[in-house]
């Protein structure tokens, strides 16, 4: 009986959480496309993105992003606009292709190698 209760409680709570997550966040925090894009464009004068910098040029670039969002351009178009002017270098999120594909694969390779080592550690007798 106690076990059944426990199971039921777990199931109800889990259902609430899952349903809530599937429903997604309410609109109290607006998804800020400008800020999201600003985080993916690097400030030409500093180490960080234009979202994380308050250098004059970063402010200007944020305004450009805001204007383009306003004008209804897509994310890719806006990023491409900056790549055309500054090169690949301007993207803080390297593309998952070309010379930066390897970078995205490295963590996966690391996980794979680690799991292989652990499995091997388990099999090899001392």
């Amino acid at each position: 009986m106690k076990r059944m209760m426990s199971l039921a409680v777990t199931a109800i709570l889990a259902t609430i959480v899952v349903v809530g997550l599937v429903q997604g966040p309410p609109s109290t925090v607006p998804y800020d496309r400008v800020l999201e894009l600003a985080g993916q464009v690097r400030c030409p004068q500093c180490q960080v993105s234009v979202a994380d910098s308050n250098a004059a040029v970063a402010q200007t670039m944020r305004v450009i992003i805001a204007e383009q969002v306003e004008a209804g351009r897509s994310d890719d178009e806006i990023l491409e606009y900056f790549v055309d002017r500054y090169g690949e270098w301007v993207l803080t999120k390297p593309r998952r292709s070309g010379s930066t594909l390897l970078l995205w694969l490295l963590p996966l390779v690391g996980i794979g190698a680690g799991l292989w080592a652990i499995v091997r550690l388990r099999r090899v007798p001392s």
Partner: peptide
């Protein structure tokens, strides 16, 4: 650690070997 190391060193190493300039920032 490996991924952070890779992300930190990748731009320097890529530029040293190919001359390509890329950035690796917060999103990665």
């Amino acid at each position: 650690a490996f991924a952070v190391l890779a992300g930190t060193m990748y731009p320097m190493l890529l530029e040293a070997f190919t001359g390509d300039q890329v950035s690796v920032g917060r999103p990665f």
